[in-house]
Amino acid sequence: MFCVVAARSAEAHVKWFCAYDVAGQPRGLENVLCLDFELLLGVAVFWLFAGCLVEPTSLGDATIRVMDRITAGVRSHTELMMRAVAGFFFISIWAVGGILLTPELKTTSPLVGALQLAIAAGMLSRRTLPLSAVGMAILFGIGVRDYGVFHLADYPIFLGVAAYFALIGLNRDMFGIRPIDVMRYAAAVTLMWASIEKWAYPEWSFPLLIEHAGMTLGFDNEFYMRAAGMVEFVLAFALIWTPLIRRCAAAVLTGMFISACFEFGRIDTIGHSAIIAVLLAIVADDKVLPRDRRAPWLAPVALCAALSLTLFVYYFGHAVIFKTSVL
């Protein structure tokens, strides 16, 4: 249910539309880890475990076969899709002007615009993809310099996409990890990190919820943001799990991002075009490796471990960098 309830606010990047303060004091962990949070986590664990039990059954096999048929066209043209969307993305932010990588990352440097056009041009040939990847890494580095590592921790997806293009262009993998899997892991980390923000700074989204009150379906804003964060975290975690689980999670996330584009317009469409393409590539990926097979009982354990680790890194990293309180 909450995949529908939380769809739009969960995937509309609040920094693009509302005032924010990355260095501000986040909600203390004693307020985040409340009864609502525990109940939502319990529901998430139940459904994740149920999905893992279904995957090795005949129903799971049938679902995989249906997804394979539906996504055959995307699968055979994944590289072309990624190159086309990346070209669209960089030409679009160049045309808007003053944007480094995402709408809240502003720049006045004319060299950034030239680099964005060069990155887009590099998408025309596989041979020049590594050069475009270097250009993307340079833009990310400029963002770290200008906005700090904590702010850019929102966007490792750009490094994942850059690595994908570099590996495709060089016809290599990364220590045995396929290019698409590098991109998938980066998307998972990006979305898990972003979900913590919804618990740490729910007030950033309140103006959006007031302006688009229908999104909450009558739920209290505080509870709604907890639910939105939990939906996003669990689906993001699922991207690193077994084939059926990750493909279904990517399909749901794709629907959520596209729904947000209709609600929030051009900026959201441009800003999220790359991650939508990544998610479509994950939905279409039919490769199954031996390491993809995991016992169902491991999923709840791994989910709770990932959640604990992400909360720890977010809060303690913020406390170290900005001298804020954890509790």
Score class of each variant (00 low, 15 high):
residue 17 F to M: 08
residue 13 H to R: 10
residue 181 D to F: 01
residue 265 G to I: 10
residue 76 S to W: 07
residue 7 A to S: 15
residue 95 A to K: 07
residue 61 D to W: 09
residue 310 T to V: 11
residue 223 F to P: 01
residue 64 I to G: 06
residue 230 M to R: 00
residue 62 A to F: 06
residue 189 V to P: 03
residue 148 G to V: 01
residue 31 N to I: 02
residue 213 A to S: 15
residue 137 A to T: 10
residue 124 L to P: 01
residue 68 D to H: 15
residue 119 I to S: 11
residue 166 A to R: 02
residue 155 Y to N: 06
residue 68 D to V: 10
residue 122 G to Y: 01
residue 173 D to Q: 13
residue 302 A to V: 12
residue 250 A to C: 12
residue 211 E to C: 00
residue 74 V to T: 15
residue 4 V to N: 11
residue 161 V to R: 00
residue 218 G to R: 05
residue 84 A to I: 08
residue 91 I to P: 00
residue 70 I to C: 14
residue 137 A to E: 12
residue 257 F to C: 11
residue 42 G to E: 07
residue 20 Y to P: 02
residue 257 F to R: 02
residue 298 L to Q: 12
residue 3 C to V: 10
residue 286 D to K: 15
residue 283 V to Y: 09
residue 274 A to W: 03
residue 222 E to C: 02
residue 188 A to N: 03
residue 154 D to C: 10
residue 258 I to V: 15
residue 44 A to T: 01
residue 179 P to C: 05
residue 315 Y to S: 00
residue 250 A to F: 11
residue 40 L to G: 03
residue 205 S to N: 10
residue 145 R to I: 11
residue 96 V to N: 05
residue 88 F to M: 12
residue 27 R to A: 14
residue 111 L to W: 10
residue 217 L to D: 12
residue 97 G to L: 04
residue 223 F to L: 15
residue 231 V to R: 01
residue 257 F to I: 08
residue 184 R to E: 00
residue 251 A to F: 09
residue 314 Y to M: 09
residue 17 F to A: 11
